[in-house]
Amino acid sequence: MTITLIVNEAEHRVAADPETPLLYVLRNDLKLKATRFGCGQGQCGACTVVMDGKAVASCDLPVSAAAGKTITTVEGLSTGGKLHPLQRAFIAEQAAQCGYCLSGILMAAKALLDANARPSEAEIRAALTDNFCRCGTHQRIIRAIQRAADEVAT
């Protein structure tokens, strides 16, 4: 079956079983490797993408449910060769250890900032409820999201 997806502002037609999780279509058909497998059950957030403005887990979402929706992945964060404020902030705060969780966290943070430009620390923590970090980089990640919000606001 051919399914049409709009990913990072480009239209893609992919031949895949409609039940295939969106994650595998992104990674294996579209070769967008930033979105990562963590659990396959929508529990850990490593596979988070932004779909129609909302952060969603792509690992247990059938690709058919994403047809025609607007999807953004980390590969679509920067525009015109310019890093997104979130990306700049994560570098500035050195907000990574292994970094495996970061793609999902960046997308959850993007959905948050797009909806709420000046989130409080508590709102940032709440927006990351479905994202895990095992290395313990939490406070750097929270600081980075605050920094990005500050940069966008000023």
Partner: peptide, 15 residues
């Protein structure tokens, strides 16, 4: 390694 990892470049054996 952070610039690559926050830009979506393949970074892990999984990729």
């Amino acid at each position: 390694d952070i610039p690559g990892k926050i830009s979506g470049a393949p970074a892990y054996v999984q990729d």
